[in-house]
Design a protein around this nucleic acid. Structure first.
Lengths: 343, 343
DNA sequence: GCCAATCCCGTAATCGATTACAGCTGCGTC
DNA sequence: GACGCAGCTGTAATCGATTACGGGATTGGC
């Protein structure tokens, strides 16, 4: 007399359902996965499922099917509006496709990013979207032998066989400079974020491009850099205003731009009359600031969408060739950069 | 000759490691989980693990141990700054404790919230933190028979045996009214969010409390409500200003307050000289707005922290009595509500 | 009436880990 | 020398699902 039923009070399994329906576990599984056609069986299984309150165990299912129904998104810090926009874009798309979203905040720690890639072969997700600050050789190495599909948002070395969504802020910044010059601005300052990152460098190069295109030279006293915070932006603006008289300030970030606005207000400089201000990322902050901020949109939302769609395509067809998508930055003009009124 | 090794190229399992180390699978598992003490065995297993590049399969592990190492957080919309603050608080605490964070955005859909609770018995997470807009009977029902520990952030009916972190905006709003009255304000308007929610109702009641305490009557034309958006706030402020002359506006949200600021600016009303403005949630927006917004903090970050800690306590000891924690709102005073200067 | 084809269904193997249980070894003690 | 005990270790059962395979029943064609 084998103990078929360990404890009748236990959680219902596929076996419980099978007994209640008077069929085999195989039939139950088939009905659950839509693989059989006999109406009568389907009905009985359905009823039994409802009666015993059965719900599939996801661990057991994952073990057998090798799929988890989960996708992870890894970025430096969800507090950053750009990453937040990506999450907002990614979440509904994955959800629509039946995936759950798992979040990794790496705190801008490279070792952490590598660890995330590495942990993929625990197979706790079916895919990953990652937005690294910098892509090191270690990254590439891990990317190439990742256990599950990965989509990278960011610049990837050429030839890296991984789906990729990229944007280069450089032309965006250059265009913003052109816009300022067109508006009659002559002394354009740059408040950059950390420079030892790929985006930081791009912004700086874009600034130089813009100046060159306008036939201007870089003046060291017009360039500052700081960390991404309102205070950082305010302080950097002070430093610049202490030694120069810019009539425009380009900030690497809307947060920095808001900081600059505060400093300008303190010094009784009118925006945009005395000084134009341009931010970057086109976040909610840009729209709600006063005056509303002109901002270089890096299309975070769109990049998130594209990345999510790329990942879904890859999951549907793992053998397709890696796809690289490039997104163009976009200058969103608002009041803070209106042209100087000719006297 | 049994096919012990299905395909030598396959992913390494505990069996692969056992062979490489010349021990049994049990020993491998013991070393991996720190259950044996023999130095020699430990060394050999460690080496074998490194050699074959073994990583535990999380599905298999979960199936056996009944634990997933995952926790979910469910809220209406991660775009809302209050929820974002919670995520930022929750994430590092869970991570520190070795849990991964899974995100559910329910889009303020009650059915979706119920579905999240229901899906818990797929056992894809070890616990859940949920922040429902409203708690219906269905919620309570599902909460009571949830398959895993749940912590609720929000108002819960008395006697519901679930860990809970709560805040009541009502006294916070009343205090803000008192602050405005102290500052010499006489006509205080309210721009509320959706009223058919628990928080919406609390805010309204707090408003009435505040008026009563100041010996004032409610005037219908000073109260508007709208959805949470800058435009909503701007429009609501217009409606009020069209029919009345408030010298203070209390908004249910920093976003709404920013909208009100825009309307006031358009009408050439000075803040705080002509009209004081108070927001709620004390988000980044309040600090960066101009003038900086006085705001009623609902301590979202702290609530997130508390909820995460409660969940960890519960996971460590499932039999402890449910704990209810109440957080007090806090008035953060900034320039937008400075006292009227006596002429 | 017989054989083949079709359609369902049940048995049992399997995914990759954990762990109860029993067996082995070596040592100390009486 | 026998026995007990401690400390490891290996075998095999187990978690809860999916699915390959083969067996029955039904039907149709000749």
């Amino acid at each position: 007399m084998p103990a078929q039923r360990p404890r009748p009070g236990g959680r219902p399994t596929v076996r419980t359902v099978a007994e209640a329906a008077g069929v085999s576990v195989a039939s139950v599984s088939r009905v659950l996965n839509g693989l059989t056609t006999n109406e009568e069986t389907i009905r009985r299984v359905r009823e039994a499922v409802a009666k015993v309150g059965y719900v599939q165990d996801s661990a057991a299912r994952s073990l057998k099917t090798r799929q988890t129904g989960q996708v992870a998104f890894a970025m430096a810090d969800i507090g950053n509006a750009a990453y937040l926009a990506m999450v907002r874009a990614i979440q509904p798309i994955l959800r629509e496709a039946g995936y759950r979203l798992l979040l990794h905040s790496t705190d801008a720690d490279i070792a952490d990013e590598i660890e995330v890639l590495r942990s993929l072969n625990q197979r706790y997700v079916d895919g990953l979207i990652i937005c690294p600050l910098r892509v090191t050789e270690r990254h590439v190495e891990e990317l190439e032998q990742a256990a599950t599909p990965v989509v990278v948002i960011g610049q990837l070395p050429a030839g890296c066989p991984v789906d990729n969504v990229r944007i280069d802020s450089r032309p965006g910044v250059a265009r913003a400079i052109a816009h300022l010059v067109d508006g009659g601005r002559r002394q354009i300052a740059l408040i950059n974020g950390p420079v030892d990152t790929v985006p930081g460098r791009s912004r700086y190069l874009g600034y130089l491009d813009g100046l060159r295109a306008a036939g201007k030279e870089e003046r060291r006293e017009l360039v500052a850099f700081t960390d991404f915070s309102v205070e950082g932006g305010a302080k950097a603006a002070q430093e610049i205003l202490d030694v120069a008289e810019p009539d425009a300030i380009l900030a690497a970030n809307d947060i920095l731009a808001v900081g600059a606005l505060q400093t300008l207000r303190q010094r009784n400089l009118k925006v945009p009359d005395d000084v134009a201000v341009v931010g970057m990322d086109d976040t909610e902050l840009a729209a709600t600031a006063w005056p509303p901020l002109t901002s270089i949109s890096l299309r975070a939302y769109e990049r998130g969408q594209l990345a999510a769609r790329l990942l879904l395509k890859r999951l549907a067809d793992p053998d397709r060739a890696p796809e690289w998508v490039t997104v163009e930055p976009q200058l969103v003009v608002r009041a803070s950069s209106a042209a100087v009124t000719t006297p």
